[in-house]
């Protein structure tokens, strides 16, 4: 029974990782940039979620506002930060991204204060008993929400013309462009979707903890990098598997290895172990 509870808790955590890491792997797949500032967008999503919920009382509206607003901020980051340095070596973008992330954390602190924000009346805190286990409604929303959002992404990528253009651009940007695909539009779309997913994760984490703070992106900033490496850089399916696997492994590890390694150390030990056996990641590098 405890094992089942730990497994479910792992899936909740894994769903959050998935929402964050998918955007990161999309950006890497398209532009070969390690977008560390993505974790800042996750934090921004959390802040918008709490502020809008507190102002209007509607979590649905807050989630929608956070996703759309952060989606646009993600596009702006691409336009003003990454686009001007795309022709430089990749480490230039990485350094810019780290700087941007630190700046974002401090901007959150200056605007929203160092104490973090909480919901005045936190929604979805009611316990729901599922298969004999107490789960918060917010935990169920996190899992179901991640499933719907990422499922929707799968449909968009697999079944629509936009999705085909997107995948073609990832696979071979020059060829895609010569077929008349506007690759700049694809990049904006990419940043919009990835950032919106991170914002959704931020709103959900805020619900689970009833706290958003300026530094809440600091763990995801590096753990999401580990996850996309695990999943095979640029591979969405692999990233999802890696996210859920890591969530579950951390969940059991926290209890049974906690005296030895903390949660982050367990995550990175797992990463090292996998890369020793499968250098290409759990699923391997995708070409499209």
């Amino acid at each position: 029974m405890l094992a089942f509870e730990l497994f479910m808790q792992g899936l909740v955590q894994g769903s959050i990782y998935a929402l964050i890491a998918v955007g990161l792997t999309l950006v890497y797949g398209l532009l070969r940039i390690l977008h560390v500032a993505h974790a800042g967008l996750f934090t921004l999503g959390g802040y918008i979620g709490v502020l809008v919920t507190n102002a209007t009382g509607s979590l649905a509206l807050a989630l929608l506002t956070a996703m759309i607003a952060v989606g646009f901020v993600g596009m702006a980051l691409y336009r003003f930060c990454y686009q001007p340095i795309l022709d430089r070596p990749p480490y230039v973008a990485l350094i810019a991204s780290i700087g941007l992330f630190i700046a974002m954390e401090e901007i959150f602190r200056i605007i929203f204060g160092p104490y973090g924000l909480s919901y005045t009346a936190p929604p979805l805190q009611a316990p729901i008993i599922l298969l004999g286990m107490n789960l918060k409604a917010a935990e169920i929303l996190t899992m179901v929400g991640a499933l719907i959002l990422i499922g929707g992404l799968g449909v968009l990528a697999g079944r629509t013309r936009t999705g085909i253009a997107w995948r073609a651009t990832v696979k071979d940007p020059q060829m895609a462009e010569s077929f008349g695909i506007d690759i700049v539009k694809v990049r904006y779309l990419n940043f919009f979707i990835g950032s919106a997913l991170a914002a959704a994760a931020g709103v959900m984490v805020a619900l689970l903890n009833n706290l958003v703070e300026p530094t809440m992106g600091s763990v995801p900033s590096y753990k999401a990098l580990a996850i996309i490496v695990l999943g095979g850089l640029g591979n969405v399916r692999g990233t999802l598997i890696a996210s859920l696997a890591l969530g579950v492994i951390e969940s059991f590890g926290t209890i049974y290895l906690g005296f030895l390694l903390d949660r982050d150390a367990i995550a990175f030990a797992f990463l090292i172990l996998v890369l020793m056996i499968r250098p290409q990641g759990l699923v391997g590098r995708s070409n499209g």
């Binding site: 509870e5 730990l6 689970l208 951390e250 926290t254 005296f259 903390d262």
Partner: peptide, 21 residues
Amino acid sequence: GEYEYSIKDRQFGPIVSKVKA
């Protein structure tokens, strides 16, 4: 029982489950 967490942790799902047990 004794369980440890890091200062960055905000989600304690696994520890909570174990404490309950």
